[in-house]
Write a protein that binds this DNA or RNA. Sequence first.
DNA 1: TCGATTCTCTGACTAAGGTCAGCTATATGT
DNA 2: ACATATAGCTGACCTTAGTCAGAGAATCGA
Lengths: 293, 293
Amino acid sequence: MSIDSQTAVVRRFNRSYTQRIGVLEDSFLGMGAPLGTMRLLFEIGTHAGTVADLRDRTGLDSGYVSRQLRRLTEDGLVSLTSDPADRRRRLVELTPLGRARWDELEARSAERARALLDPLTERQRDRLARALAEADLLVRSALVTFETVDPLSDGARAAVEQYVAELATFFPFDPGEPSEEDAAEFRPPSGRFVLAVDDGAPVACGGLRDLGDGVAEIKRMWVHPGWRGAGLASRLLRHLERTAADTGHTAVRLDTNENLKSAIAMYDHAGYHRIARYNDNPDATHFFEKPLT
Amino acid sequence: MSIDSQTAVVRRFNRSYTQRIGVLEDSFLGMGAPLGTMRLLFEIGTHAGTVADLRDRTGLDSGYVSRQLRRLTEDGLVSLTSDPADRRRRLVELTPLGRARWDELEARSAERARALLDPLTERQRDRLARALAEADLLVRSALVTFETVDPLSDGARAAVEQYVAELATFFPFDPGEPSEEDAAEFRPPSGRFVLAVDDGAPVACGGLRDLGDGVAEIKRMWVHPGWRGAGLASRLLRHLERTAADTGHTAVRLDTNENLKSAIAMYDHAGYHRIARYNDNPDATHFFEKPLT
DNA sequence: TCGATTCTCTGACTAAGGTCAGCTATATGT
DNA sequence: ACATATAGCTGACCTTAGTCAGAGAATCGA
């Protein structure tokens, strides 16, 4: 299928899906308060926090949010308390009444989704759910961005932690606390640490360090379990290769463990060839290299 | 998959798709005119016509549309001429300048769809396009409504015309002009003609007529070619059976031609059993019956 | 031909959504 | 202690989107 016909499919879908079904928005209507107010209530219920927090997430104006919050507190749906840590700040929370309204919003939204499925037969419902799940995974992965970050930044630490926890289920593995000298290897000029971010949350990572002789090594490559099967690993791998080339390397190496079957299959498929052991990593059983053009 | 987890999939998709991508709407922004005005421009460019026409399609207030049109004419994007057939009416058309703006909207919308596909690999793009095409077909088919109409109404005639044209590609078939006496069989009290409508356009049809002895016959069942594979035919068949039962019948019969393989497979699958020839239809080769519980 | 109806336009009005400058209270760096 | 910065609030103001009740012209039915 050409990119033009793919584009046409996306546009056609957009039209029939978003134009003809008042998808989420309408759930916020008819609740006795204007849409914007309800949207804010929904946002607070999803994640309480400070006013600034709320502004950041919604992208709304300070004055506007302030007024909406006043309305919500007057209606008894939201409570504002000053933050003991910094008394300029105000903490926003739902009251029990507000929580009840939030639940109602949730229920309406679910009802709306159900109304879409309702006229379909069981088989069609299943087909639709499968198609949307597949589309969801791909759409989300299209929106993932790769960022070069410091290996000791919060995001990087969170990702590596999950990577370590997961490896530990395959073989005994405990690299201890992340150290400053270890992190230095993954910093510029010769190293990099790349984080794949979806909506602010890290969903994949990978580090590059210099081995000398124009060779870079890929380490700590990990993809969030919920994101596998969408081709994110391949995209990350290609991104790391390009980054290695940009930092003046002519080849990349990596090692892995025989238990990580799908990783090995991916390296084979991505143009890596197997080489002899090039380090003394006791956990590694397979060693790969790929020349960078 | 249970209906609850299917609902969850739909909601999750809605969130990532509609909330995070400013799908179509945003294409209308930043064009120097407010969103509503641009939306109307888009609608006019898609299909020119009278003002009332435009109001019907958009569901907007008469005064509101009138004002928007004035703005668009002042900006030189739209031309208003009175309809020679009825000089109360006004015909709305895009000027060349308006057409240029419309093209720009189209281009933006296509660009937006492309931006979604762009970061993906060719294989992922293909998977996404396939998933969305499947979802589109199913979503649209969920929104199709069945209406009992007069067999000589515009919609019914349009559908039957397509049905006839299509049968004629399988074997010589020409029933001539639709006659009043022929139509009478498909009218209440004992007959019905059912039209499946998507967004105002007929996409499938089927007629019921009384054969006596509590038996109804299904005739002229047709599904638009673009709608096959979505289970619409099965839904229509079930709807016709229910209608036959509601009008006091205890069984339905139908005949078909050996060349219509998929129709025969569907009848077999839907609980019909083959019976001996029950009429002298020269085009029919296969005869079916199903008891109605 | 006359009254009713239809089609479009206009004026008056409203609510929602949003922007901006400035205010007060609190926190922070020197 | 002082200047400076930050968090949230308030008042004034604006545009957009939309509603409603007619007015005026054209058409239709009897």
